[in-house]
């Protein structure tokens, strides 16, 4: 892939269309250098990560309890089903105008968009995980005199944790795409998404590509983290069913 890129870049010979490998690497290898007066690559990546984490955490704090409720109690399922199935297909970015109208341009509206992106995958896999918790586990624990609270904390949550975690992994992936897109919107002045758009405005395509590579690498690293935790904590999952 890299070879084809380099060959194409040399063939096109136009840094405004496709920069060469060296040009992009020179940006990537100096992550602390200021770029066009809008902060370094590292600083912008840090800002994007803080935003995505904030939005993700808000989404998780809302989606996990709600997902448990939907998965466990029919009432919640009936009430929420229509709402969820009509809201879920709306892409998070379609909320941008409303988000800006409600929350003004800035951190709050960005975090709102990110949280929306992460919310549904976490909600749905939590509900599914809760429904999949073996009945025999619940019955065995209720024979120890467990009430509803103990059933949820000792069986339902740990029993559906692998699915919840998978939902978080997918949700974080979507949130990461959302943050970059949200940062490209007017009114932002930092973050990897902003950096890409800003550099594009100045014709610095090597910065655009470097930014894209940085986004990709960070996305992969985060995904790896989720997978590593899954292997360590939820290895029991493989032995069930």
């Amino acid at each position: 892939m890299i070879l084809i890129w380099q060959a194409l870049a040399l063939y096109v010979n136009n840094p405004f269309v496709l920069p060469t490998l060296e040009a992009v690497l020179s940006v990537l290898l100096k992550p602390t250098a200021d770029i066009l007066g809008s902060g370094s690559l590292l600083e912008n990546a840090r800002l994007s990560l803080v935003r995505v984490t904030l939005g993700f955490l808000i989404a998780a704090f809302l989606a996990v309890p709600l997902g448990v409720a939907i998965g466990r109690w029919e009432v919640f399922k009936d009430v929420s089903e229509g709402l969820i199935s009509s809201l879920r297909p709306v892409p998070p970015l379609a909320w941008v105008p409303l988000a800006m109208a409600w929350l003004k341009i800035g951190l709050a509206s960005m975090v709102f968009i990110i949280a929306l992106g992460a919310f549904f995958p976490i909600l749905l896999s939590t509900a599914q995980g809760v429904r999949g918790v073996k009945r025999s586990w619940q019955e065995a624990v209720s024979m120890m005199g467990a009430g509803e609270v103990h059933l949820i904390t000792k069986v339902i949550l740990p029993g559906s944790a692998p699915e919840i975690w998978t939902g978080m992994r997918v949700g974080f992936g979507i949130a990461w795409m959302c943050v970059v897109a949200a940062e490209m919107l007017p009114g932002t002045s930092s973050g990897l998404g902003y950096l890409i758009m800003y550099a594009y405005g100045w014709g610095q395509i090597q910065v655009v590509v470097a930014g894209m590579v940085a986004i990709g690498i960070l996305g992969i690293l985060i995904d790896r983290f989720f997978i590593a935790v899954e292997r360590k904590w939820f290895s029991w999952r493989a032995y069930e069913r």
Binding site: W137, E139, A140, P158, G159, A161
Partner: peptide, 11 residues
């Protein structure tokens, strides 16, 4: 109660 399937919590 002892169930047909042990019903131990695998985690």
């Amino acid at each position: 109660m002892i169930f047909q399937e042990h019903a131990l919590l695998p985690w």
